[in-house]
Nucleic acid binder design. Structure first.
Lengths: 242, 242
DNA sequence: CGTCTTATTGACATATTTCAACAAAGGTGG
DNA sequence: CCACCTTTGTTGAAATATGTCAATAAGACG
């Protein structure tokens, strides 16, 4: 095991709730190991159950659903600190797939320990429920964006969410954050065709607001981006890491 | 208090997980009362916190988000057996509003009892997390529908979800279920204009598949509807009532 | 250097929206 | 019970945002 929970690089970030020493120790006990995967690896398959849960230590990925005819909906982007597989642990199977877009390092937990958590660590259990609620909130936000807003707003919304999420992780360098996805991924996330997504990105670039190229997202005018894209003011909510 | 949990008309439905006598009793203890509301009543407001949680005994409603400029996304339809306000209880505030479309009867619970549940009734706490996961699953399904599918499929999807949900509640009479909403509500749910929603409904009616009029939804060809609308096979998942 | 994937751009096709007018249903007061 | 008014549903025509097709450019990679 490479990273001890006590030295977890994520926990100290302002985005995450502080944890007591006892909590850290408990987490350490539950952590079964660390897993490193290559880009393209599928971590969860829609419809399948998994004996493991993961927390993302580093790297990025995608959650998505596939339709019978091959169309794909990207449900969310996966970033460090995300908790993967809770749905499977609670409901018995995943309702979407998760795949790595970059090399990823994951902390591994056992699904069967979930019961132990609910039985003996109610505060941790509450945190997990919280994480579920956060995801639920995100999804309803996404739904409102796809359902009610036009292309320009949708793309701005997605870029802004990504930007502020990664900014909270202190990943901004020289006005840009890493964004190692393809335009196809963004298109499938906002429900637009690839071509139209590309043209909309060009429009944002032309307006001097945001520029995504070379695997990095440069946001030159964050306020303008927020104005166009934000559905609701950015709650920088303290989220539980676990 | 009118309805004792022991005689709850919902609990016996095949859709819900069986509960032990002890569980029923515990639920009864937590139930603070019953609330009856008129159509149009707003039960939760986006952004606000609420000291109460509800379970729907009867009646129907809507969950929705409002955008700055008045556009509205209907996030889900609310049916008997639904649990309302969990988000508020867990995250501190609701991220969408909920309003009654018909007269409704609600079982009232106290938000503060949530802690008690997590501390002393881990199985109930697990159930709540489950409910959150079910909602999350529904939302990602909705997202995929709005993001990837065209009008005809979207409307069929929505009608089919409603149909099978109400069918599980044993609310089918003469091939129809009550559907006391306006076309505007459906339009805002599937992300289409009112006019286009209307024309799409006419198309389904013309095809002899489904007919929504007079506050009732007649599904003449459920298999065809499922084929057009269903994203995934219908898991008639046993859900916890509480 | 070739080959594969990904990004970019223009022209055209079309699903969906918007506008507008009318019809039907439901509620209210006389 | 009728006349009136408001809300909700229905339909056609025109406007437009977005999708599709197709060709080229630009990177990535062995």
């Amino acid at each position: 095991m490479k990273t001890a929970c006590a030295h977890c690089p994520l926990r100290c970030l302002p985005q995450f709730q502080p944890m007591s020493e006892a909590d850290v120790e408990f987490m350490q006990v539950l952590k079964r190991g660390e897993m490193v995967v290559d880009p393209g690896t599928t971590l969860f398959v829609e419809g399948a159950s998994s004996p493991q849960l993961y927390t993302v230590l580093s790297g990025m990925g995608l959650r998505y659903k596939t339709l019978e005819d091959g169309r794909r909906q990207v449900v969310n982007f996966v970033f460090p600190g995300d908790y993967l597989g809770l749905q499977s642990a609670v409901m018995g199977e995943m309702r979407h797939s998760i795949e790595a877009s970059t090399p990823m390092v994951l902390c591994v937990f056992n699904r069967t320990d979930l019961w132990e958590i609910f039985r003996n660590h109610p505060e941790r259990a509450f945190s997990l429920t919280w994480l579920g609620s956060v995801e639920e909130h995100f999804l309803s936000d996404a739904l409102a964006t796809l359902g009610q807003r036009e292309a320009y707003e949708r793309v701005a919304w997605a870029l802004y969410r990504i930007w502020s999420r990664l900014a909270a992780m202190e990943m901004v360098r020289d006005g840009s954050v890493p964004l190692p996805y393809r335009q196809r991924d963004l298109a499938d996330a906002v429900g637009l065709s690839l071509v139209h997504t590309n043209k909309t990105l060009a429009k944002l670039r032309g307006a001097g607001i945001a520029d995504w190229r070379g695997g990095r997202l440069y946001v030159t005018d964050p306020l303008a981006l927020a104005k166009i894209g934000a559905l609701e003011p950015d709650h920088i909510e303290l989220r539980p890491l676990f």
